[in-house]
């Protein structure tokens, strides 16, 4: 039984060491693992403004405007503490709408407007039929995101 016990402890110790190493590496690279930055991070000037980055948050309700050329849209991305104005020309994903999660990739210009080159929609983990969403909204129990349809 001795070699078996030795191998068992070798596996346990190996996994422990590996887990610790992985945790350290992930902690060290934390800044690179986050997919997007929040408007609050932008507001606190902690981000290098000359670099491209992804901005994530909710499309502020009532902020969506279509420019005169018909393809440029402007809206504000908010995390309910701060908001950043965004300008974008191009196709929008199906889930893009006011009150819905969004991730914009681009760069801040001199006027503090985020010039996006790509817009991704982010949805939450709630799935339900339309009638249920409707009933929840009517009953005032709405806690999901988005305006729905």
């Amino acid at each position: 039984m001795r070699p078996k016990r030795r191998r068992l402890w070798a596996v346990v110790a190996g996994l422990g060491a590996l887990g610790a190493a992985a945790a350290l590496v992930l902690a060290a690279f934390e800044d690179n693992i986050v997919f997007f930055r929040s408007p609050s991070e932008v507001a606190s000037n902690s981000l290098p403004t000359e670099r491209r980055f992804r901005l994530g948050g909710l499309v502020e309700t009532g902020s969506l405007r279509k420019a005169g050329d018909g393809v440029t849209v402007t809206f504000r991305v908010t995390d309910l503490a701060h908001a950043v104005p965004v300008s974008y020309r191009g196709l929008l994903p199906d889930l893009f709408r006011e009150g819905q999660g969004v991730v914009a990739e681009g760069q801040l210009d001199a006027n503090g407007i985020f010039q996006a080159s790509q817009i991704l929609a982010k949805h939450d983990e709630t799935y339900m039929p339309r009638e249920v969403a409707e009933a929840l909204r009517k009953g005032g129990h709405w806690k999901g995101e988005g305006e729905g349809q």
Partner: peptide, 11 residues
């Protein structure tokens, strides 16, 4: 199953 209130039939 019904379509999703946000995602329609893609769900």
């Amino acid at each position: 199953a019904p379509a999703d209130y946000q995602q329609g039939d893609s769900v």
